[in-house]
């Protein structure tokens, strides 16, 4: 017998019981991945539990009324989160109103063959670079360049449409609307990159099928390609919404940190993350607890957005 052939003189059980390094590595590998997977879950639980326990004094003190109160008074230890909840949600929604049409439009453009690939690839790369700009840079750019640039336009809107509740105040240099526009620019790359990927990965047979029936490019895009890429597009919007809700630095620098709910988008406002960033340094006692309560609310909000995204994406995938 040559040394290269395997001897089968042992029984199957004997050879299975024998020590064997690859088999051991296989077992270790299995348990290592289990441990890593479990640790991620544990970290999430740990963070949630810490938030809950530190927020507990504020939860006990203010209860659910915290969500509806506009007071933030460290002197009298009275706190409420309504302006921050309002500012967080409204700034994110306004940001989405601008970012969705722009982002999906750019994604469609980049997924079609309007331009040769040599030009498209650099454009896509530059768009993805937008995501790499640190948010503090967006904040500085907003303060010194973007807000001064758009303020005359906002003045004009106020002059013409000032009778509408959401444009009913003189545009301030720190305000919700301008913050939302900067947020829109920040979340654009997310929407563009993921929407484009899901458009590009629609089967070419679908496009040929639609063209073969005499559909124009517009009809093919709007009735076949975009619907079949919809789960990816909605996923991108939800991810972008998650980023807008939690965005801290740019919002803290631009929104004006005013503790009032104003119907006007041109008035200063506040967001949960901006409030935490501004006050956490000098907070103690019940104030710190109230900040943790706000953080908990923000976490629940983003959790809900993520769950909603899962539900929507699953629903659309079932249709496909």
């Amino acid at each position: 017998m040559t040394p290269s052939t395997i001897s089968h003189q042992e029984t199957l059980i004997e050879s299975s019981q024998k020590f064997n390094a690859p088999r051991l590595i296989d077992r270790i590998f299995f348990w290592l991945t289990v441990a890593l997977a479990v640790s991620v879950g544990l970290i999430l639980l740990w963070i949630t539990w810490s938030l809950l326990s530190i927020a507990f004094p504020a939860i006990a003190e203010f209860n659910i009324g915290f969500l509806f109160s506009q007071v933030w008074n460290p002197v009298e230890d009275a706190y409420g989160a309504l302006p921050q909840i309002y500012g967080t949600i409204v700034s994110s929604i306004v940001a989405l109103l601008f970012a969705i049409p722009l982002g999906v439009g750019v994604a469609v453009f980049l997924s079609e063959n309007f331009l040769p690939r040599k030009i498209l690839t650099p454009i896509a790369f530059v768009i993805e670079l937008l995501a790499a700009i640190p948010s503090v840079v967006y904040g500085m750019w907003g303060i010194f360049v973007f807000i001064p640039f758009i303020l005359p336009g906002l003045q004009a809107i106020y002059g013409t449409f000032g009778w509408l509740p959401f444009f009913s105040t003189q545009p301030s240099t720190r305000q919700l609307f301008a913050t939302a526009l900067v947020l829109a620019i920040m979340i654009l790359p997310t929407i563009i990159a993921i929407s484009r990927d899901s458009l590009v990965s629609t089967p070419p047979e679908l496009r040929q099928g639609a063209y073969g029936l005499g559909a124009t490019r517009w009809e093919t895009l709007t009735r076949v390609l975009v619907p079949s890429a919809l789960s990816g597009i909605i996923g991108s919007i939800m991810l972008a919404l998650g980023r807008a809700l939690g965005e801290t630095m740019a919002a803290a620098m631009l929104i004006g940190n005013s503790n009032r709910v104003s119907a006007s988008l041109f008035a200063p406002a506040s967001t949960i993350s901006a409030l935490i960033a501004n006050q956490f340094g000098e907070a103690s006692g019940l104030q710190r607890s109230a900040l943790f309560y706000e953080a908990l609310i923000l976490m629940i909000m983003t959790l809900l957005v993520n769950m909603l995204a899962e539900v929507i994406v699953n629903r659309f995938q079932q249709v496909e």
């Binding site: 639609a210 029936l213 496909e320």
Partner: peptide
């Protein structure tokens, strides 16, 4: 070409129904 394809239809190698 869109008008051409309205008069000359096509069935493809792999069935490609729309996700509708």
């Amino acid at each position: 070409p869109v008008e051409v394809r309205r008069r000359i239809g096509m069935v493809f190698q792999r069935p490609n129904p729309f996700p509708k």
